[in-house]
Simulated assay, not measured.
Amino acid sequence: MSKTFFWQAVRLVVMVLAVAGIIYALEFMHGGFAVWFWVALLGVGFFGLLWTFRLTQQRVARERRAQKQRSKKRCR
C-alpha cells in the first residue's frame, strides 16, 4: 500500500514540474517541441494517477467482497 502512495506522490511531483515546464516553455521558448514535451509529461502523470486510483478502488472493492464472504461463512 505504501508503494502505491509513493508512486502517486512521484506522479504528483512530476505533474507539478510539468506545469512549471509548460509555463517556462511558453514564456521563454515560444512553443515548439519543449511545450509538447511538458504537455505529454503532464498527460502521462494525470493518466498514471487515474490508473492507480482505479487499481486502488478495485482492490478495496475486492477486499470488501472477501470480507462479506468470510462473514457469511461464519454465520452458517
Rank of each mutant, 00 (worst) to 15 (best):
Val13His: 04
Ser2Tyr: 09
Trp51His: 06
Thr56Lys: 09
Lys68His: 08
Val13Gln: 03
Ala61Met: 09
Lys72Ile: 13
Ala66Gly: 02
Phe28Cys: 02
Thr4Ser: 10
Val39Gln: 10
Ala40Leu: 15
Gly45Leu: 13
Ser2Leu: 13
Val19Asp: 09
Glu63Ala: 11
Phe53Met: 00
Leu55Pro: 03
Phe53Gln: 00
Phe53Glu: 00
Val13Trp: 03
Phe28Thr: 13
Leu49Trp: 02
Ala34Gly: 12
Lys3Ala: 12
Ala66Trp: 10
Lys3Asn: 13
His30Met: 02
Phe6Trp: 08
Met15Cys: 14
Ala61Tyr: 11
Ile23Ser: 02
Gln57Gly: 00
Ala34Asp: 15
Gln8Arg: 12
Cys75His: 12
Phe37Tyr: 11
Leu17Asn: 07
Leu42Ser: 02
Thr4Val: 06
Thr56Tyr: 08
Phe5Leu: 14
Lys73Arg: 15
Gln58Ile: 02
Met1Tyr: 02
Gly32Pro: 14
Gly43Arg: 03
Thr56Phe: 06
Phe37Val: 14
Ala34Leu: 11
Trp7Lys: 12
Ala25Lys: 03
Val35Thr: 14
Leu50His: 04
Gln57Val: 02
Phe53Trp: 07
Arg59Ala: 12
Arg62Asn: 04
Tyr24Asn: 08
Val60Leu: 14
Val39Thr: 13
Phe37Met: 11
Arg59Phe: 02
Gln58Leu: 07
Trp36Leu: 06
Trp38Ala: 05
Glu27Met: 08
Thr52Phe: 06
Arg64Tyr: 10
Gly43His: 06
Val13Cys: 09
Ala9Asp: 15
Ala34Lys: 04
Leu42Asp: 09
Tyr24Lys: 04
Gln57Cys: 01
Gly43Ile: 07
Phe37Cys: 05
Arg64Ser: 05
Phe47Met: 11
Lys73His: 05
Phe47Lys: 13
Leu42His: 05
Arg62Ile: 00
Arg11Asn: 14
Thr52Pro: 06
Val13Asp: 04
Val19Tyr: 08
Trp38Ile: 01
Trp36Gly: 09
Ile23Ala: 09
Gly31Arg: 07
Ser71His: 09
Arg11Pro: 03
Gln8Lys: 07
Arg54Thr: 01
Cys75Tyr: 12
Leu17Asp: 10
Val44Gln: 01
Phe37Pro: 00
